[in-house]
């Protein structure tokens, strides 16, 4: 599965450019409800271990369970020794301004690009 789409969010993998896009509002209940999204992201990493790229610019809302999932994924990259990871965020999405930089604390090699 390389896309998950509901009324609230759309997660999809752009195979040509090797980028996972996150869009919409993700406020799911705990790790259990995030499991399909974790599976999608993990499957992409297994296919293309050389570089992981996420585009979060259109992810307007994320609850703390979702933030936990993002941070844990970064830790899993660190554990696997896969340091090539790029995250594109938006300066116009407040939660991203507040919280995305924390990912660099878990994996300093992350390339975090915040666009307007």
């Amino acid at each position: 599965m390389e896309a998950i789409k509901t009324d609230d969010y759309h997660i999809w993998y752009d195979q040509d450019n090797n980028i996972v896009y996150f869009e919409g509002s993700l406020r799911l209940n705990g790790v259990g409800e995030y499991a399909p999204i974790i599976s999608l992201v993990d499957a992409v990493v297994d296919k293309h271990p050389e570089q992981v790229s996420w585009d979060l610019r259109k992810l307007e809302f994320l609850n703390s369970s979702g933030i936990n999932v993002l941070y844990k994924f970064v830790l899993s990259m660190r554990k696997k020794g896969r340091n090539a990871m790029k995250v594109v965020g938006s300066n116009t999405v407040p939660w991203q301004q507040k919280s995305l930089a924390n990912m660099k604390k878990f994996l300093p090699s992350i390339e975090l690009e915040m666009l307007d």
Partner: peptide
């Protein structure tokens, strides 16, 4: 096995 994040108030 952890299912709750415990990050809400902390964040």
């Amino acid at each position: 096995a952890s299912t709750a994040s415990g990050l809400g108030l902390l964040s």
